[in-house]
Design a protein around this nucleic acid. Structure first.
Lengths: 228, 228
DNA sequence: CCAAAAGTGTTAGAGATACACCCATGG
DNA sequence: CCATGGGTGTATCTCTAACACTTTTGG
């Protein structure tokens, strides 16, 4: 069944890196300097090495191309239509990642390549089938954010409830009721109140909260399902 | 960035084929006749050809190895740890499939290979990392079945509400209340009552229903989300 | 004192859950 | 007439949704 006589496509990973910038959901793109699609924007990614896992490849490429480490990364599928790369058969394994723009700085330029953040809802024309991959990544993110507490990955370790609400509203493209949101999110028990408050704001400072991983792990074991 | 100098692993598809057999959720496995893992059971699958998409490869392999066509198939991820195949680097794209055992006959033997159905909760020892893939497939199926009307794929075109309830109970490993289940599933509006009844049963014959695809498509457009 | 956002409770309605008996059919 | 599963309704409770004003702070 298996053997060296079988076809061997190239295998890449591509990452849809999301970040939240002042109430806008952004996607990180790099501008290609080589053909095909030279000059076009594309999702960061690259070839999987023979001795690394797919997850490792995704993290490595992300770090090489954007300088971010230790961020949330999750695989969401493989794309491999023949012809998606005009040169040869390339199967790509797609990941989405969440970057906290408050604490990580993302390199704007790497390897003589231009990198930039674009609003997810109006990205430039993308190379290969990356538009389709981005669409799938966004759908997956929206699904995930409602069913698991990954939204916190976008925010600084301490954040206000309003920041959190804005985040959900932005990602889900839907307004949420302030009182209901606060009740519901606090009722989950995964937020820990801190003694800190916003600083440098021209109005009453909001209390800051922190995601309580231990509490969440405990609740999960007890069958709790996060759901916003 | 891309080029022929880059590594080219082998790429396969593997399918976790689920079927419902008299209240038991079963998984279709084939017994390998070649090394490595000769004699072990494995998920059906094989190499992706250079000119076919991943989905096409999955359907082709499924048909070649089990004789089933036109069944529900969905990709759920890629597995590519180095060493998962002892001979060379092989990245596999994993699919799960749902087979209706009432209307499809599944070949028990193909290509001199033995095929058989096993209960998902006590499969034999599997080749490669297929145990892990099966686990992921099952988790995905359980998720899917609750949020989209794919359960019907397991059943004949016309089925009783009790059959449907058993299906959910089996897949979700949880008992459901009969009256509440019937209320809820009928309230979705995706079931169409037929004029037919069960036959050859030693008790009152149950009315048969059919999944109404058109109604579901209409409801979906209107924002309805299936949820059991 | 003004602007801006923080913070806070209640009510009505919808949906979920829990629960038990009679009916139809075939053997 | 018995065994088997089919079919049905109601009461309670929980969760969701809708909704507006007062407080705090900085400028």
């Amino acid at each position: 069944m298996y053997g060296y006589e079988y076809p061997h496509p190239a295998v890449t990973v591509d990452c849809a890196v999301f970040g939240l910038d002042d109430g806008d959901l952004k996607i990180l793109l790099i501008q290609r300097d080589l053909e095909p699609f030279a000059g076009s924007w594309a999702l960061p990614g690259g070839f999987v090495k023979m001795d690394e896992s797919l997850d490792e490849a995704a993290r490595r490429e992300l770090e090489e191309e954007t300088g971010v480490k230790k961020i949330y990364v999750e695989q969401f599928g493989a794309f491999g239509d023949p012809g998606r790369d005009p040169r040869e058969r390339v199967v790509t394994v797609a990941y989405y990642a969440i970057v906290n723009l408050f604490e990580h700085e993302v390199k704007a330029d790497t390897d003589a390549r231009n990198a930039a953040w674009f609003p997810v809802d109006e990205p430039p024309r993308l190379a290969f089938d990356h538009a389709r991959i981005l669409e799938a990544a966004l759908a997956r993110l929206q699904d995930k954010v409602r069913r698991e507490p990954v939204g916190f990955e976008f925010l600084p370790r301490k954040f206000s409830l309003t920041q959190l609400q804005r985040l959900y509203e932005t990602i889900l493209c839907a307004p949420l009721d302030k009182r209901n949101f606060r009740k519901k999110i606090l009722a989950t028990g995964v937020l820990e109140e801190t003694e800190d408050f916003e600083v440098d704001v021209a109005h009453r400072a909001a209390r800051l909260y922190r995601f309580d991983q231990k509490a969440y792990a405990r609740l999960r074991k007890a069958g709790f399902v996060f759901d916003i």
